[in-house]
Design a protein around this nucleic acid. Structure first.
Lengths: 182, 182
DNA sequence: GGGCGCATGTAATGAGTTACATGATTGA
DNA sequence: TCAATCATGTAACTCATTACATGCGCCC
């Protein structure tokens, strides 16, 4: 549903073909969606079948043909329906990475710390890629989606470093000489 | 994979049956995962088939039988493998709600504002449910997963209200008397 | 007696992934 | 000449959802 919204939205005012679309999704929107190649092609075909887009075949010289898609007026209406629904609703975000945190006490805090430090590194890398793209106080100039992503990455970093501090304290306390029995 | 981690982790030290597990997932972990009933049952069966858990049948009086699961030592090992992997890695979080934001300019800013205000209300409700469960500076006492969720809800609220401000400014400017041609 | 809670699923369907297939052109 | 890029997919599979099925006990 949201994937349809995305593709339809991209196709509005950008008549393009599957290959180019896949390329764009992988190179520019990887932070937003993870759409595999066959899924994208299948989605285009489904949109066509349902009358939301039409398809015309192009070819340049002897290169493979291109199936170029255009949004129909039904597709236009459908797009706005999906868009309004998407903007209106709040859907719980899902953090698959959070599930491990639920069981963090199953590991000795030293190991947990080491593992989460690895995670932190990866997160910092991600931030280095995306933070520069969103100058602070950019208003609507910088795309708000990017801003949204960066804001959450930063929240994640804050939370993660604070959790790491707690863990370090946990094993620092344990390693103190025990004067009284527990 | 992460769902297996979750179920296996819950089953460690809590021998329980499908019905009770489903109940717990729905009532207490709805913010963390969305696991439907048949999926959960199927997952339990798969874990059993793969030797990660064993199953024993119980029954009280004339009530329907209960299939109670216990984690095996292979399951134990598998759990730790999954847990380490989950803690170590950073996976991009996905925000299906963000896709609409990408196309926000397709709507007049007044309408976008109205829609996003609806979203904000839903978000505030969610916060009212979860914020009280996580007193600030709770360390490892409050479950860190809950803390994680709340942190992101708060980040979302901050971002959303700032976006709304920008939108309001956008149409306030437009409604000013135009002195010069554009 | 009617509905909810307990306790288990199955069957049909849909959505998405992985691996594979094809064949031309372009650049090193 | 070899690999990468352009451009399209299909087939087999897994994973998950929705809707349906069953039957007892308990409470109003």
């Amino acid at each position: 549903m949201n994937r349809e919204l995305l593709i339809l939205g991209l196709l509005r005012g950008w008549d393009t073909h599957g290959y180019q679309l896949v390329d764009f999704l992988e190179k520019r929107l990887a932070y937003l969606v993870d759409l595999k190649k066959p899924t994208t092609y299948a989605l285009l075909e489904r949109l066509r079948r349902d009358g939301h887009v039409t398809m015309t075949v192009e070819r340049e010289g002897n290169r493979p043909e291109r199936r170029v898609y255009q949004v129909t007026s039904e597709g236009e209406a459908y797009f706005f329906r999906l868009l309004r629904e998407n903007l209106r609703s709040f859907a719980r975000p899902r953090f698959p990475n959070a599930i491990g945190i639920y069981f963090i006490q199953a590991l000795p805090s030293e190991e947990a710390e080491a593992l989460l430090n690895e995670r932190l590194s990866a997160l910092e890398e991600e931030l280095q890629e995306f933070e520069p793209k969103v100058p602070a106080h950019a208003g609507l100039a910088a795309e708000p989606v990017l801003q949204h992503y960066v804001v959450h990455l930063q929240a994640e970093r804050t939370w993660l470093t604070s959790l790491l501090r707690t863990l370090v304290e946990a094993h620092r306390q344990r390693s103190l000489p025990t004067e009284a029995a527990e």
